[in-house]
Amino acid sequence: MERIPILRMGDYLLVTIQVDMHDRLAMALQDDLTARIAKTGAQGVLIDISSLEIVDSFIGRIISNISGMSRILDAHTVIVGMQPAVAITLVELGLTLPGVLTALDVEKGMALLRRLVDVPEEGDDEDNAEF
């Protein structure tokens, strides 16, 4: 059975969903991810769904569940790169995903995770905001 790969990067786990999610795949991801968090003691999980174009209420709930489960396992989850159409669909379905952290892209998501987890950084991430 196909599975979604979970990459480990230091204290963080990285998941990139690049195929259309079906229910079994989503359930498998939920199992794998919780197992990996428990095993590695990861403090942050980043899920990139920028390639996900179709979403239904089940997938929406799985996303919400994964976030809640990882919180119990003491890891923060950030969902990044949600497409406008997906966001509109979820809102119309009434799934507002309260408590789930979101970011526009992987970079901003990682920045958010770093702030949340607050691990001593090798190489300061300086914010060069120009105006």
């Binding site: 949600m82 966001a87 809102v91 119309e92 507002t96 970011a103 892209d105």
Partner: peptide
């Protein structure tokens, strides 16, 4: 509210 929630889901 819907617009705000959708924007939040995208990370804004």
């Amino acid at each position: 509210l819907k617009t705000v929630t959708a924007a939040r889901l995208m990370g804004a």
